[in-house]
Design a binder for these strands. Structure first.
Length: 573
RNA sequence: CGGAGCGUAGCGUAGCCCGGUAUCGCGCCAGUUUUGGGAACUGGAGGCCGCAGGUUCGAAUCCUGCCGUUCCGACCA
């Protein structure tokens, strides 16, 4: 590729609205331009980059007998209503105004609708189907360039099996393909167990790229034996011990004490475990609203995802007016005993199961209640693990300590089971002639997000640093002066030879651009190897090779340059 | 959805409090000189100051409404 005819609008300065490295650098390197919030045009250089990632993905999908499709991005409302997801996804789905159509945020329904009339015998199974295509999600808050967009490219794959063992195998194959993909993409990544959200299904794992720009927190044990999204993470923590003192519960005056910390200060204690925090949630899907009070140890936080998993539906915190109505008190003085609204469900964290002598709000402003014994005083209570894991805690087996890291979710794999097949009536006949629903898995990779994650992990103050197969070009050939016949001829000769040797080369043959600009552009767009042709070195019969990542410079005889660069490229710098 | 901010030339900005038709840098165009780390000089082009309404002799500036957009949180995968 010749840079003289290539549209590469690089920016000298950082765009003010771009905060994260990948966003800033994708804009500066002329890869993307924003059209509107969360929607980006891919410019030629960006397209080359994204296609590199797609190529790796495609090869690994094909290697596990994947069939590539390309499905429509718009689909009838009806199909989505059949699985209930028209409602479940709600505003996240873009809706077409003048037809009963939606823009698809994912494609389980559409693929299943193709499977239904075509995968009709156990002999047709298993199948792995995939596509690389635009997805549309009306995200409330798009973020950080292509890290979270409203339109983005996804590789979505679906497996269809006749048995659970078959699903296990498809899932395992896919997990291995994902490991291959992200390894080939040059990413540091971790596989964590995850929450399946609106997808439904049982097992699910996420492929996470540690990066400060990430939106997820992942919990990893120091010995590497445990890795989980914080949304579902568990850890070891002592239960609150039973004292069996049999003291009667009684309220006491706690003026202006709103938080657990204030309460601990007021009581002059550092141990917050017996100070039970009460939070009220609303299940908005039920008619007439269903309230839930969650009790948790004062030094813990409620993990709302665990709560959602338990209810299988989105829940939200109660508003202040609702609190007052249910409990008779404001936040800070609420507790499980003496509630005004008796229809509230009470759940406590597992660690409080044996707890007595607990202190909680008295449902009367500025009063707390002490000597609460949940078993004795709150008969209709359930115990569930609802706490959020904290940095430094031990794994369940107590063999290792946990660390928490920010990460970008680049891939997610799910065992779906029969949810979609049942909803859409997609069945097959087994060897006994019995009709069964197809057993499905679903597997996604965000293409632009994967590229952004790579950039988050591979950049410096000068720009992006590509490596290996992800690199859009292996080498950038920089002619420092196309107006010098000597420099020009040697550069052209190199360009020809790179092409003959199948080395992907970007040729900076721009005539009126000064060397400084060429160097800075080359560093910014981050091609791993720079071959610099300038008059000074040419006079000695030499050329210069610069390695982008290390900044290392080699002056070599021009006859040896091509071999040297082939060697360097093999080392996948 | 809650909180905070910002919309002035392709990009980055000044002006806004205190009203008088827009400042500066980069970039762009032409010419001359330059060519190994974002050149110098000279000349030039480029603006419905986000949109609509209001106040005023006069609005980028004051008022009202709307739209767009960024960040933090919530939600989501």
């Amino acid at each position: 590729m010749r840079l003289s005819g290539f549209f590469l609008p690089t920016l000298k300065d950082d765009p003010v609205d771009a905060v994260t490295a990948s966003h800033r650098l994708m804009l500066r390197a002329g890869m993307i331009r924003q059209l509107t919030a969360g929607v980006y045009s891919q410019l030629p250089f960006g397209l080359i980059v994204f296609r590199k990632f797609e190529k790796i993905i495609r090869e690994e999908m094909d290697a596990i007998r994947g069939n590539e499709f390309l499905l429509p991005a718009i689909a009838p409302n009806e199909l989505w209503a059949e699985t209930g997801r028209l409602e479940d996804y709600g505003d996240l789905m873009f809706r077409v105004k003048n037809r009963e159509l939606v823009l698809c945020p994912t494609h389980e329904e559409i693929f299943t609708s193709i499977a239904k009339p075509n995968l009709i015998s156990y002999k047709d199974l298993p199948q792995i189907w995939y596509q690389i295509q635009s997805k549309f999600r009306n995200e409330e808050r798009p973020r950080a360039g292509v890290l979270r967009g409203r339109q983005f490219t996804m590789k979505d794959a679906y497996s269809f099996d006749s048995t659970l063992e078959g699903l296990d195998k498809s899932y395992k194959d896919m997990a291995q393909a994902y490991r291959n993909i992200f390894t080939r993409c040059g990413l540091n990544f971790t596989v964590v167990s995850a929450h399946s959200g609106a997808m439904g299904g049982s097992d699910s794992e996420e492929f996470m790229v540690p990066a400060s720009a990430g939106e997820d927190n992942i919990v990893i044990s120091e010995d590497g034996s445990y890795a989980s999204n914080i949304e579902v993470a568990v850890s070891f923590k002592e239960k609150v011990l039973r004292k069996n003192s049999d003291l009667k519960s009684e309220d006491f005056h706690t003026p202006d004490i709103k938080t657990i910390d204030e309460l601990a200060g007021f009581l002059n204690t550092k141990d917050k475990t017996r100070l039970a925090k009460s939070r009220v949630f609303v299940n908005p899907s039920k008619e007439g609203n269903e309230y839930v009070m969650v009790l948790i140890s004062g030094d813990d936080e409620v993990n709302e995802i665990k709560l959602q998993n338990y209810f299988g539906i989105n829940i939200r915190s109660a508003h202040n007016e609702e609190l007052l109505e249910i409990t008779g008190a404001d936040a800070g003085s609420i507790g499980p005993i003496g509630l005004k609204n008796k229809k509230i469900k009470i759940i406590a964290d597992l660690l409080l199961e044996d707890g007595d002598e607990l202190i909680s709000g008295a449902n009367k402003n500025d009063y707390h209640l002490k000597n609460i014994d949940l078993k004795r005083d709150v008969p209709d209570i359930e115990y569930k693990d609802l706490r959020t894991v904290k940095e430094g805690e031990e794994t369940i087996d107590r063999n290792s300590k946990l660390k928490i890291t920010r990460a970008i979710e680049v891939g997610h794999i799910f065992k779906l089971g029969t949810k979609y097949a049942e909803a859409l009536g997609a069945t097959f006949l087994d060897a006994e002639g019995k009709e069964n629903p197809l057993i499905m898995g679903s597997y996604g990779i965000g293409v632009e997000r994967t590229a952004a994650a790579f950039i988050e992990q591979n950049n410096d103050e000068k720009g992006i640093i590509w490596k290996g197969e992800a690199a859009p070009f292996q080498v950038i050939l920089i002619s420092l002066n196309q107006k010098s016949d000597e420099v020009k001829n040697i550069s052209e000769e190199f360009y020809k030879n790179f092409k003959l040797n199948n080395i992907e080369v970007l040729f900076d043959d721009r005539a009126d651009v000064r060397p400084g600009v060429k160097f800075n552009d080359a560093d910014l767009i981050g091609i791993p190897v720079q071959l610099i042709i300038g008059e000074k070195n040419i006079k000695e019969g030499n050329v210069e090779i610069k390695i982008r990542r290390t900044g290392e410079r080699l002056i070599v005889r021009k006859e040896y340059a091509l071999n040297k660069i082939s060697e360097l490229s093999k080392e996948t710098i």
